[in-house]
Structures are given as C-alpha cells and as structure tokens.
Design a protein around this nucleic acid. Structure first.
Lengths: 106, 106
DNA sequence: TGAACCCGTAAGTCGTAGCTTACCGTTCGT
DNA sequence: ACGAACGGTAAGCTACGACTTACGGGTTCA
C-alpha cells in the first residue's frame, strides 16, 4: 500500500473537493459523478480511490454499481486536527496579548 | 498574481502543515523554522509565500528579521468550509435514515 | 562606510500527481 | 448463455510542485 492516506493531501485537489461536495449532497455512483465533472470516468475512479484511502468516503456495492458517500468520521478527523491548530494559535495569541499588556503596565 | 491562493492546496503539503503547526505554537523567524525543518531556508521562504497568499499566516517585519505567525482568520475560513461539508453530509444522512425508517414502517 | 546578518527571488533539476485511452473482470437482463 | 452496463486497473504522457544553489536587496552594529 504505497497509496496516499493523508486526508489533507486528498482534500488538496480541487477535483476531489468537488467530489466530496457532490457526495455531501447525496450518495451517487461513479458514472453520475463523471457525468457532472469535466473529467473522464477513470479519473473519477482514481480520485475516489484516494478519498477512500484517506477515510473520507465509503463504498456500498449495489448491483453492478458502486454507491459512494462521504464518511463523516473522516471529516470529523480533519475538523479535530484543524481545531487543534486553531486552539493552539488562540492560546498563543492571548498569551502574547497578556505579556504585551503587562509590559505596557510596567 | 499567478500565485496559489487556495488554503486547501496550501495545507495539502506536509512541510507547510508542519510550518503551520510550528507557528501555531508561537511566532518565529524564517531562519528559526529552517533550523528545525529538514529543508533549506529558501524552501521555507517559498512555503511561507504560499501560506501567506492563502491567508493562513501573517508577517511582521522586526528589524532585519521577519516574524511569521498564523492568521486565525485563515484557519477560521477553512473551518467554516469544512463545517459546511459536514453539515450537509449530516443533513443528508438523517434524511436517508428517515426515508429508510418510513420504508420499513410501510 | 563596511562587514555581517536575515531573507526573498531566479534559475534549473527531479519526482510525481492528474489526466487520457485501452483493456478486463463482474453483474444484471433477456 | 449472451450482450450490455458499470467500474476498477494498466500504461503512458504532460505539467507542475517541491527542492536545491546562487545571487541581490535591506537592515543593524562597529
């Protein structure tokens, strides 16, 4: 498995973000996605492979078709990491503000 | 301005995510970042350029050095878009669940 | 003013991501 | 069992992103 499993890298590609947006609106098959997107069906397939490896989408075989949908857990993981960044940045901000205030008080 | 201004693309690169992580812990100069990271100083400079274009970091010239720090607004924007995906996905989920329940009731 | 630092940019190389066409396995309908 | 959809994979091409080294512009301190 040399495949890319990083959700951030997966979301970095505009086409994949568009796919996620479409799937967030409702599950759909590969052909349905390819019909809307300006890329070929195999390209969509490859993007879905990356998104699946990143844990952002799920597959549900249904007859001859494969229905894809977003995996809330994947988005949640991204949110968690992003909140981590944000929280740390804010904590650092208030600390700097406090220090600055104290310096001005002195 | 051919520069890349997409925050998602900016966060897609591991080195840049690491820089954001470092800056979230506290502001620092380019040399300080390059000292920690396994890449050259110009490489860090280029990454910072992308992050700045994406609105994820801010610069504050201080003497001969340039102090970089995260821009909370940029992270907030990412959070907002991510929450949009999540909310839509969840709404779609409960709708599907309701429909499924109704079908089973009928 | 000149030396020493910090940093951004230019130029060039290398790897790889994203796309295409072609092909093949699988599943349903008749 | 045959043909048709649906979709994943292989092979190959092209473009771009992430590095590197080399250079130049500012700012500080003697």
């Amino acid at each position: 498995m040399i495949a890319e499993a990083d959700p951030w890298v997966a979301m970095g590609d505009p086409s994949r973000r568009r796919i996620v947006r479409l799937l967030a609106a409702g599950p759909s098959s590969v052909a349905e996605l390819a019909d809307v997107l300006p890329i070929s069906r195999p390209a969509v397939s490859q993007h879905l492979k990356v998104l699946k490896a990143a844990g952002l989408v799920d597959v549900r075989p249904q007859g001859t078709r494969r229905i894809y949908q977003v995996d809330p857990a994947g988005l949640q993981a991204l949110r968690a990491e992003l909140d981590g960044f944000w929280g740390q940045a804010m904590a650092n901000f208030v600390e700097l503000t406090n220090r600055h205030t104290k310096e001005n008080e002195a």
